[in-house]
C-alpha cells in the first residue's frame, strides 16, 4: 500500500488538503454532536416545555418540567377526565441549542447590562485581557531572565530552583485570600494570581529550555573567542529564542486558566463576573457564548503569535 496515501501511516505527515480537512472536522464533529442532541427530539430531551397547561394547576406556559412528572400529571388528568397538558420535548436549560448560543453571542454584545453601572460584555472582556496582560508581562519580565540564569549557571539552578519547585506545587488560587489582604480588592490581587500561576512555572520551563541548547554550540563559540557575557547574549539567547517563544505561547494559555479564579477573588470582574452574573439569571446561552468567546480569544492570539513566530525565526521553517 502506498504509505503517502494512507490516512493512518505512523509518524507520517498528511497532505495539506487532508490536514486542513481534519482541522475543520475537529470543530465540526463536536458541533454535530451538540446539534444532534439539541435538534433530534428522540435523543435525550428529558424535559417537556409546556405550551398549554391544560388542567394541571401548577403548570404554566413556557415552563420546563421533567418528562416523568409531565406523564404522571397527564395520566392523572385523563383519569379525572380533565384536559391534558400539552408541550414539546426539550433539553434542560443548561444545554441551550447551538443557534441560541449564536444568537446570544450577538445579542450579548448589544444588550445593555441590567444594572446601570455594570460593564458591557466587551468591557468585561477588555478588562480580562488587561489583567492577563499585566500579570503575564510582569512574570515574563522577571521569569525569563531568571530562567535563563538558571539554565546557564549551576549556581542559580541550585539556589533558585529547589524553592521554586516547592512553591510550584501550591495552587495559585490558594494565594487568593492572602493577595486580597496584601493588595486590596481591586485588580492588583488578580494580576498577582496570574503572576503566581505563571511565574514559577516559567522560571523552570525557561531554565529547562536553556539547558536543552546544544552544548557544542557553546563550545564552538568559545573556540571562536566568545567569553561568558558574549556567550549569553550571542549564543544562548538567540539559540533558545524560538523555543522560548513557544514556551511563552503555552504559558499564556495557562494565564487564561488562572484568569477565571483570579477574577472571582476580591471584587469580581471581567469575563468571569459576566459568566457568573448570567448564570444567576439562568441565561445559559450567554454563559456558553462567553466561554466560547474565551476560547476564540485564546485560539486567535495563539495563531497570531504562531504566524508572527514564523516570520521572526526564518531558520526554524524546516518543513
Amino acid at each position: 500500500m502506498n504509505v503517502r496515501k494512507h490516512w493512518f501511516a505512523i509518524r507520517k505527515d498528511l497532505s495539506g488538503q487532508r490536514s486542513w480537512l481534519l482541522g475543520l472536522c475537529s470543530f465540526l464533529l463536536p458541533l454535530c454532536i451538540w446539534s444532534l442532541v439539541s435538534y433530534t427530539p428522540w435523543i435525550w430531551h428529558p424535559m417537556v416545555l409546556i405550551s398549554d397547561p391544560g388542567g394541571v394547576a401548577y403548570f404554566q406556559k413556557d415552563m420546563l418540567v421533567d418528562r416523568e412528572i409531565f406523564n404522571k400529571e397527564n395520566a392523572f388528568m385523563r383519569e379525572e377526565g380533565e384536559s391534558e397538558a400539552r408541550g414539546e420535548l426539550a433539553n434542560p436549560i443548561y444545554l441551550p441549542a447551538p443557534h441560541k448560543v449564536v444568537q446570544a453571542f450577538i445579542t450579548a454584545f448589544q444588550t445593555a447590562p441590567i444594572r446601570r453601572n455594570d460593564p458591557w460584555l466587551h468591557q468585561s472582556i477588555l478588562h480580562s485581557i488587561t489583567v492577563i496582560f499585566y500579570g503575564f508581562t510582569l512574570s515574563a519580565i522577571l521569569g525569563v531572565p531568571l530562567g535563563i540564569l538558571c539554565g546557564t549557571f549551576a549556581f542559580f539552578t541550585r539556589i533558585i530552583e529547589p524553592f521554586i519547585d516547592f512553591i510550584r506545587y501550591m495552587p495559585a488560587p490558594a494565594f487568593g485570600a492572602l493577595m486580597v489582604a496584601f493588595l486590596g480588592i481591586a485588580d492588583a490581587p488578580k494580576v498577582a494570581i496570574i503572576f503566581i500561576g505563571t511565574f514559577f512555572q516559567m522560571v523552570l520551563v525557561v531554565g529547562n529550555t536553556t539547558r536543552l541548547l546544544d552544548k557544542s554550540l557553546l563550545e564552538a563559540a568559545q573556540t571562536l573567542g566568545a567569553t561568558s557575557k558574549k556567550l549569553i547574549f550571542h549564543v544562548i539567547v538567540p539559540g533558545i529564542l524560538p523555543n522560548l517563544y513557544r514556551d511563552m505561547r503555552i504559558l499564556l494559555g495557562w494565564a487564561w486558566t488562572y484568569l477565571i479564579v483570579a477574577e472571582l477573588i476580591g471584587a469580581s470582574s471581567g469575563i468571569s463576573w459576566f459568566i457568573n452574573q448570567q448564570a444567576k439569571y439562568r441565561n445559559y446561552d450567554n454563559v456558553f457564548a462567553a466561554i466560547v468567546m474565551i476560547g476564540i480569544i485564546g485560539l486567535t492570539t495563539d495563531q497570531i503569535l504562531r504566524f508572527i513566530g514564523h516570520y521572526l525565526f526564518p531558520w526554524e521553517r524546516r518543513n
Binding site: L217, A220, T223, F313, W315
Partner: peptide, 13 residues
C-alpha cells in the same frame, strides 16, 4: 586554536 566539530555546530539562527 580554531576547531571544527563532527556535528556541524553552525549557529542555526
Amino acid at each position: 586554536r580554531g576547531m571544527v566539530f563532527q556535528g556541524y555546530t553552525l549557529f542555526p539562527w
